Amino acid sequence: MDIIIETKALKIFLYGILSCKCPVTEATEKKLFKLFFKAKRRESMDYLSILAVADKNPERTPMHNLFDFCAWAKDDPFSFAITINDVLRYLGSSFHYNMVVSNHPGIEITNPGLLLSHVLVPVSVRKNESNIYAIYENKHATTCYKSIIIPKDLEMEHELYGLHMGVVLCGLSGKQADMLISHQTLIKNFSEIAGRVKTVEFKKLPPYGDHFSQVNDRFKRYILR
């Protein structure tokens, strides 16, 4: 097989893993980041080396799910490249949304803030005198995300950014933001669910508690904060 991933796409995906309670052990996580740091100056890298590390994790990982997500869309599942847009669609489309809903039955009603946080959405990043926060807007909703994390290597020069579980993963072009909005339009009742969520405070995120501090510590582990 000849599977490669854009290095920038891998970075976004690994930051997404740090932002979430994925079934990836610390040992596996460190090995994945070691591969990334070794290859980060290249445009792309071999994805099979990523899967070789993930295969040794006790549970199936998002790295496996990303492979399946991309392979299903290709005529030749043995030779393709995983791009930034593939990662954005994986985290921001019905694929990821349905995965969260299946793992948390009834979350649309019981914890819509957590559900909305799990889906990568386009946000504007703003600041006041003491805080940095993110705003997500659609026709039915305006949601404010408080206590967000911005990796120190992220260039803050965009109008919109991709937010996942309280972490600003990347800047978005206008076309990328439109792509996410289009995919989220296909998610039944997504706008209405978002309309129930006025504020998400990541220092008080049910059922995780201080999710901000937990994730911040994980980013500091790799000197990313």
Rank of each mutant, 00 (worst) to 15 (best):
M165P: 00
E155V: 05
L180E: 07
G171C: 09
I181C: 09
A194C: 13
I135G: 03
I150S: 11
T110S: 14
P206F: 02
P122V: 02
I187F: 08
G113P: 14
G171S: 08
L160T: 13
S173H: 10
R196I: 05
G171R: 11
Y145H: 15
N128W: 02
F212D: 01
N98I: 02
I132Y: 05
I109T: 15
E192Q: 14
G162Q: 02
D178I: 10
M99W: 15
L91R: 07
M165A: 03
A134I: 10
P122H: 02
I132P: 03
S182T: 13
H104N: 12
T143A: 06
S130K: 07
N138H: 10
A141Y: 01
T143M: 10
N128D: 11
E157C: 09
E159N: 11
Y133R: 01
S182Y: 12
S94W: 05
Y133F: 09
V123E: 01
V100A: 07
K198W: 04
Q184I: 09
H158Q: 07
I148E: 01
L114I: 10
Y136C: 01
Y161V: 07
V121D: 07
V200P: 00
V121I: 15
F202Q: 02
E192I: 14
K198S: 11
Q176N: 11
E155L: 02
N128G: 03
I193M: 04
P105N: 05
H118R: 08
S191D: 15
I193E: 04
G106Y: 12
S191Q: 14
G106F: 10
Q176H: 12
Y161A: 05
I181E: 08
